[in-house]
Design a protein around this nucleic acid. Structure first.
Length: 461
RNA sequence: GUCCCCAUCGUCUAGUGGUCUAGGAUACCGCCCUUUCACGGCGGCGACACGGGUUCGAAUCCCGUUGGGGACGCCA
């Protein structure tokens, strides 16, 4: 059975890159009728935040990725890790190291300069006694030889074992470290396939060494390239939204985000649009690219507008209310409004702004537009149209269209002398949804009010 | 600095030795549609990083150069 997992550390929020790895793992598990599990890597007691776990689970909920069985918290499993560390200690596969932080700093400094460190980091590797000093436990890595494994994305990966130092598996405060707990948990959770960022490639060798020390089966690894920012570097907070929930705030639909992410580093021929079902059916980690990809917001926008266009109005109205405090549930022309808007906006946020613009009477008029379309003749047209409206009762867009045409014919004037000006009266400029729809949404009373307001305003000049 | 990874239009990518005068998408530009802005339709611009091999033949294989990225923690 294919069992995959996503194992974030709770330091803040769900990262957009993390969501992609989670998605890959989730898809692979679902495709194989396997399991997708969640594990919180909170062994570093100092850096963890309780709210972060909540935030991560909330993000999962938003994008609608579910997981199997209960979430595993590493902080609750310290006893288990302790037991395995003692095993290694007993077997002589690990040892207590009494090097001080100062001594390690000297070693690290030398290494950074490319010099031979004055202190041997393996100083206590063969030390037999016990010291009454704080210690860490280090894993004994083989001194010579080569270690290779077949990566599902990058192919055969090898390292000279002399390059891998005796890494710490238990801190001096008695807590185990990442590389150790990952192996124990992945084994106990029976994880079969691990899809993760290629920044973990180096760790994989250490982890395989641990699997071998315990005599456990090594899972299949897939190292996927990082997502880069526009400049080609690792995606960070400074590049804008890296928190998944930011995208909800910005008005993105979760399926648009997932569709965007799944195509970053993975493809299926020329196909761009994937439903979740299609992703599950078509995804295979062996098709993941080796090269890193950049986060391109324009493409996300395009996908988002696609999904907005194809969403039922009901859903959009609900989201508008919940996420953007724009409540048009009781508006009698809400369907017309949404039908018009969903064709043209890229985000829900934009849609909310457009609705505000339409529903709130303008308190100023765009200078350029006024200059271009308003003159004495137009003013008198608007006055007469106001009167003309008195014994008309248009409701739907075609009816408004008809009324305007009637007026144009009656007066023998061009559309330009009425329509753009009308729009200026309504919203302050010449941009926006179809004029007939706009008038229909506002309703006759409001239309008259806004024309009057404009005329009053104009007479001040 | 050491080690590792990567390299097709601006961006996401198709391509696995001949079907490539390199395909799609996005972005951009133009035209059409249109009272406006969008949407949509049509068209255009635009890439195999460079240099050597191998081969009858290379975007595809090998080597080097260059460029980019990552890892070098008692973080994960």
């Amino acid at each position: 059975m294919v069992v995959t997992r996503f194992a974030p550390s709770p330091t803040g929020y769900l990262h957009i890159g993390g969501l992609r790895t989670a998605l890959f793992n989730w898809l692979w598990a679902r495709k194989n009728n396997g399991k997708f599990r969640l594990r919180i890597e909170d062994t570093d007691l100092e850096r963890n935040k309780q709210e972060a776990v909540e935030a991560i689970l909330k993000a999962f909920k938003w994008v609608n990725l579910d997981w199997d069985e209960e979430v595993v918290f590493q902080s609750k499993r310290f006893d288990v890790y302790k037991k395995y560390i003692n095993d290694l200690l007993k077997k002589g596969l690990a040892y207590k190291c009494y090097l001080t932080k100062e001594e390690l700093e000297i070693i690290r400094e030398a290494k950074r300069k490319g010099e031979e460190p004055p202190i041997d980091i393996r100083k206590y590797r063969d030390f037999k006694g016990e010291l009454d000093k704080p210690y860490v436990v280090r894993f004994k890595t083989p001194l010579t030889g080569e270690l290779c494994f077949e990566d599902g994305v990058k192919g055969k990966q090898c390292v000279k074992l002399e390059e891998i130092e005796d890494f710490v598996i238990l801190r001096s405060d008695g807590t185990p470290t990442y590389n150790f707990v990952v192996v124990v948990d992945d084994h106990e959770m029976e994880i079969s396939d691990i899809i993760r960022g290629d920044d973990h490639l180096r760790n994989t060798f250490k982890q395989i060494l641990l699997y071998k020390a315990f005599g456990w089966d090594v899972p299949k690894f897939y190292h996927v390239p990082m997502i880069h920012n526009e400049k080609g570097a690792k995606l960070s907070k400074r590049d804008g939204a890296v928190d998944v929930m930011e995208y909800k705030k910005e008005g993105y639909l979760p399926e648009a985000l997932l569709n965007f992410l799944v195509r970053l580093g993975w493809s299926y021929g020329d196909q761009e649009i994937f439903s979740i079902e299609e992703m599950i059916k078509l995804f295979d980690p062996k098709d993941i690219n080796k090269a890193p990809s950049r986060f391109d917001k324009e493409k996300l926008n395009w996908l988002n507008s696609h999904y907005i266009k194809n969403s039922p109005n009901e859903r959009l109205i609900k989201l508008l209310k919940e996420d953007f405090e724009v409540d048009i549930e009781d508006h009698d022309k809400k369907e017309i409004l949404i039908d018009e808007l969903k064709e043209r906006v890229k985000t829900l946020k934009e849609m909310a702004q457009e609705i505000q613009k339409i529903l709130t009477p303008p308190n100023s008029y765009d200078e350029k537009a006024v200059k271009k379309f308003i003159n004495d003749e137009v003013i008198s047209n608007l006055r007469e149209f106001l009167v003309f409206l008195n014994d008309k009762n248009p409701k739907l867009p075609p009816e408004w269209h008809e009324v305007m045409n009637e007026f144009l014919n009656l007066k023998g004037i061009k559309p330009k002398a009425l329509m753009p000006p009308l729009r200026i009266c309504m919203v302050g400029d010449t941009k926006g949804i179809d004029l007939s729809a706009l008038l229909s949404v506002l309703g006759k009373d409001e239309v008259k009010k806004r024309i009057s307001k404009f005329l009053a305003n104009f007479e001040v000049f």
